[in-house]
Structure formats: structure tokens, C-alpha cells
């Protein structure tokens, strides 16, 4: 009952973005993929979300052959750095989207959808803003909407691609704390990509430090910080 990423490799043209990345995370764990730009962390996350396809390697999640499933059926909530909110929909419609597109037999009634949206707005502390459009929100509020939208589908997995990268330091800290609270509340397996080591260590149970498409070191934040196993990791962490 866990997430097992085994030797995942991916090339873009001739450029190898991933060179056999492997890690195992427990069900309900919170993993940070940490590394400089070009280390392959976003590519790995997008492969987990079904937005890119691996050239080789496998991913097992619980008892599912994860890479054989299309993005649509994975039920993995994805949060993008640039929010990717639906510009022409209100906050409430954005959050409800994943429920409204379900096939009729699995679609909640509109009353249930409304209830769920209200709960989620409460969870991400945006109550009262349901009728706004994304362009009328601040960056931090938009990312809260994106998080609520990803949680609305009751995801099996939550994937976040530098979600706080475009926000200022104070908002980042608030959102980070909220994300951890939401994760603990929902108990969903979470993979979080960042290049900010403070953020990675503060929020995750497990940190994977990546370099050149490989995972250099993987472990609990305290262990990684105390015992960097390679020169790269120790240099990266002291930077």
C-alpha cells in the first residue's frame, strides 16, 4: 500500500530529463522533490500526473499499474505553478469542475456539489469569494482555489508543481502551513516539487534531492540535513 517509483526515465529529444529515478513512499506520505532547475523534478511529477509519458520504468500506486492509466482516470489532483485556473469560470465553478464532469452515475447532485464547494472554500479559507473570477483574486488566493479544485475530486494523490513559486515569502509560509494541515486532514499521498530547500524540509515527511534526472539522496528531512551522502547534496543544502 504505497507509491513505488522504479527507474523512471524520460528523454525530450536527445536531452535526458530523467535517468532512472526511483523512490518508495508510504501511503499518505508527503514527499518533496527538491533540486535545481533542470534536475527533472517537474518531469517526474508530470509523469506521476499523467501529463508526460515515461520512456521506461514503472510506477505502482497501491495495487495500480499507475503509468498504464490515462491522466483522466488516475484521480490525482494536480496544482500548477501558474495556477491554471479556468479564467472564464467563477471560483465556485472552478472548484466544482472535477465533480461536474463525472459520468452521470457517479456525479453528485448539484446540492451535494454546492455543499462540497462550500466545505472546500472553508478549508482553504476563501469563504465568501465563490462568485469571484480568478482575475479578481490575488496570487495566494488563486493558488488556494487551485488547491481546493484539486481536492474536490477526492484525489488518490496530490501533486504540486512549485505551487508557491510565484508568491511572496510571507504568503508562501502561510500556504505551506495550510497545505500541511490540509494534507494531515485528508491523508492523501502528496508529492511536492520545489527548488526551495527550506520549504521542502519544512513541509515534507520525506525529501528526495534530485540532480541530472536522478535522485541523489532520499530520506527524512532531518537525516538528509544531518548526513548528506554526496558532495552535491551537501553543497546544495549549504547554498
Amino acid at each position: 500500500m504505497s507509491l513505488t517509483v522504479d527507474s523512471v526515465a524520460k528523454k525530450f529529444g536527445r536531452f535526458p530529463a530523467l535517468n532512472g529515478a526511483s523512490f518508495v513512499a508510504p501511503q499518505g506520505g508527503f514527499v518533496s522533490l527538491l533540486g535545481p532547475s533542470g534536475s527533472g523534478k517537474t518531469t517526474l511529477l508530470r509523469i506521476l500526473g499523467g501529463l508526460e509519458f515515461a520512456d521506461s520504468g514503472s510506477v505502482r500506486f497501491v495495487d495500480l499499474n499507475w503509468l498504464d492509466m490515462p491522466a483522466r482516470t488516475r484521480n490525482a489532483g494536480f496544482v500548477f505553478q501558474q495556477y491554471a485556473l479556468f479564467k472564464h469560470m467563477t471560483v465556485a465553478d472552478n472548484i466544482a469542475f472535477g465533480l461536474k464532469v463525472r459520468p452521470r452515475n457517479r456525479r453528485p447532485s448539484s446540492a451535494d456539489i454546492h455543499k462540497r464547494v462550500t466545505e472546500l472554500l472553508d478549508l482553504v479559507q476563501l469563504s465568501g469569494l465563490e462568485a469571484r473570477y480568478p482575475s479578481q483574486l490575488s496570487g495566494g488566493q488563486r493558488q488556494r482555489v487551485a488547491l481546493a479544485r484539486a481536492l474536490a475530486i477526492e484525489p488518490r494523490m496530490l501533486l504540486l508543481d512549485e505551487p508557491f513559486g510565484a508568491l511572496d515569502a510571507k504568503v508562501r509560509k502561510e500556504l505551506r502551513t495550510d497545505l500541511r494541515r490540509i494534507h494531515d486532514h485528508a491523508g492523501v499521498t502528496t508529492v511536492f516539487v520545489t527548488h526551495d530547500q527550506e520549504e521542502a524540509f519544512a513541509v515534507a515527511d520525506l525529501v528526495a534531492v534530485m540532480k541530472d534526472g536522478r535522485i541523489e539522496q532520499y530520506g527524512a528531512p532531518a537525516d538528509v540535513r544531518r548526513n548528506p551522502t554526496t558532495a552535491f547534496v551537501s553543497e546544495f543544502l549549504s547554498a
Binding site: L51, R72, G77, Q82, L85, F86, H88, G98, R149
Partner: peptide, 25 residues
């Protein structure tokens, strides 16, 4: 493709993505 990708991860089919996300944009 950001919004289309988001729609796909939220479970929308290709047609739903086109009608609800791409076309309004």
C-alpha cells in the same frame, strides 16, 4: 495547454475539455 491539462487531471474527457474549457477561452 495549462487549463486543458488541469481539466484532464480533474477527470474531464477530451470532448468535455473542449466544450467547457477550450471553447469558452
Amino acid at each position: 495547454c495549462d487549463e486543458e491539462e488541469a481539466a484532464a487531471t480533474l477527470g474531464a474527457t477530451g470532448l468535455q475539455t473542449f466544450l467547457r474549457v477550450t471553447l469558452p477561452n
